[in-house]
Design a protein around this nucleic acid. Sequence first.
DNA 1: GTCTATAGAAGGATAGAC
DNA 2: GTCTATCCTTCTATAGAC
Lengths: 205, 205
Amino acid sequence: MSTKDNQTEEKIFEAATTVFVEKGLDGARMQEIADQAGINKALLHYYYRTKERLFNAVFEKLALILFKRFAPVLDANMSLEDKLRFFYREHIDFLKKNRSLPSFILNEINRNPERLKKLISGYEVDKLWRILEEQHKEELQKFNITYRNIPQLMTSIAALSVFPFAARGIFEVIFEKQGISFDDYLEERKKFAPEFVIKAIKGSA
Amino acid sequence: MSTKDNQTEEKIFEAATTVFVEKGLDGARMQEIADQAGINKALLHYYYRTKERLFNAVFEKLALILFKRFAPVLDANMSLEDKLRFFYREHIDFLKKNRSLPSFILNEINRNPERLKKLISGYEVDKLWRILEEQHKEELQKFNITYRNIPQLMTSIAALSVFPFAARGIFEVIFEKQGISFDDYLEERKKFAPEFVIKAIKGSA
DNA sequence: GTCTATAGAAGGATAGAC
DNA sequence: GTCTATCCTTCTATAGAC
């Protein structure tokens, strides 16, 4: 492939990312992607053949970026509490820069769960479970977190950072009516969320 | 209006609800709605003129149902703790029967926040804030919940019940891989979520 | 590799008969 | 009120020149 190929293909991919994230698969138009990329509609098909293929490329890239953001913090050499503080700081920072990403990914998966199945077919999904369990066995035991309700804990942790973005449209409108800035809310959330979880866990002791 | 009018209009509305919730505004087809209602495409336009109007009718009805489910519990004459237990039990039960509702509402609002603005223009959104604040002043003070971080608390409470449904596609797939039943998870959540919040709040004391 | 032009299908909306 | 038939626009996709 020549350099020029890559440049065009990348321009298309970036434009497609923008439009798909904003409008969704069904709402996106190939014409709009072409305009955004500054090229012709026919070129989209030259590089990606169909809308579906172009979408899949974008979706898979973004979904992996989003999911992989959950993992690394779990491997770090920290106490459970510090991991939580670190996680929310990093994760909310990342999502602040990609505000529409959660809503896009969640929605497209809900609409077609097969996409996710294909994506994670090679992965060991329970890796996060087991890392949490193995690295923090004593802490979790102390707090009466059993293996059985690790799913409850994990989904709660995720909920506290992802939900504000998934429900961004609602929160922004309601906050605005109250004179609250969504960005200030997010900044505070980096501190509030980990302390909330830590207190909830410690309260189990 | 004759009885027959209402019957047809209602059949259309119900079919539209099913299809719009499942496919979204952009993904829904008037033909599919007509088929689902067992009538002709032209009749849709006879009753609702355009796809947009039909969608608006469905969206507004469902959004109000969803939002109003948050309010009544706040008025009840209970301690904050019992309200939380009551809320999660009722709310998760309701969402279990309407699993795709959160994803649908959140997504359509994110895609077009004007819908929400129109919907709540007559409402005092901060009513929930103030009820919480006034009815539980002492409890909240005791737990160091200031007026400033009531938004943090409210959004966290909502996140714990709504997020599992907003991310249902992901959770169902991952749980299945782990041999966990999503329905069992939801049943447990009715207990886990309120205790989680209560412990988090009490830990602030 | 990139463009213009256009095919071909689908979908929203309407006209008009009953 | 309900149906059939059809219009018209929009959209994906391709053909073919450069």
